[in-house]
Design a protein around this nucleic acid. Structure first.
Lengths: 138, 138
DNA sequence: CTTTCCTACTACAATATGTAGTGTAGGGAG
DNA sequence: CTCCCTACACTACATATTGTAGTAGGAAAG
């Protein structure tokens, strides 16, 4: 699974997926086990009328992109995410953090401190601690 | 100017622009003053044959996206970036760092330490110092 | 054997980007 | 004063991504 874009304007899953894709992933990750298109369609259809085929197309595209797996079952298929939501978020966080530092280097460092301070100052302490831990292990 | 995407797979300006857009911005930012489509086309054309109109279209799209400015001159137009390359990178770095922390919170913090350590350990010291500075000012 | 249902295939719209042709207006050459 | 050249505007087409959905086919169920 290889994400292409981090959308700057969006938030949450919308940063990585289209709007419908995001809703579908939300449903997949919320359901504990494997799930059929029918199930997903049923949930989406309650919010907004939508063709079964629309859901199927998008889900199969997610399979092509290695974000979902598709397994044949009796007379049907079941779908499930290749990664858990947590693993996905973890992987993206890692990838993006690396990219950010590769791309912007020390510029990013300055902004990190500001950003952490504004979003949640407690994270600053956490970061300071993490740095100390790493240095101690040397 | 509002960028939409940060492309995870690319690097440099290619993270924010299409391939041709990136080359054009490269040229614009390399030239110290205002520049015509003709100039840009001339430079690009040496690498790879390309229509004047292709360059014009892409440059005018960049104007629509508020990335370039276009000023009428005698019998022609001159183009220049709305922001310097430095300002652009600075703005993107800031935006993305904020987004990253908003989106991933403490998860990002953990990855930051790892990423900094791998990309350039000296940045870790810089970060530690920055945190101390901020805390002292309280 | 027919109906129902799921899936595959196909198709179309909108947006983003790369690519380029045609049309046009106005300044400069003769 | 007329004609041409050039730079620009407008239009068009290709590919990719995403949302949307119709149609057709096959298999199961009755």
């Amino acid at each position: 699974m290889r994400m292409q874009n981090f959308k700057i304007q969006s938030s949450g899953l919308g940063r990585f997926f289209g709007p419908l894709e995001a809703k579908i992933m939300e449903i997949l990750w919320s359901s504990d086990s494997e799930i059929t298109i029918k199930d997903v369609h049923h949930k989406l259809d309650q919010e907004k009328a939508m063709s079964f085929n629309t859901v199927m197309t998008v889900m199969n595209r997610l399979v092509e992109k290695d974000i979902l797996q598709k397994r044949p079952l009796i007379r049907s298929f079941v779908y499930c995410p290749v990664m858990s939501r947590e693993a996905f978020m973890e992987a993206q966080s890692k990838e993006l953090t690396f990219d950010l530092i590769e791309e912007f280097g020390s510029q990013a460092v300055v902004h990190m401190v500001d950003a952490l301070d504004q979003v949640d100052p407690a994270l600053l302490d956490r970061l300071e601690q993490k740095i100390k831990e790493l240095k101690k292990d040397r």
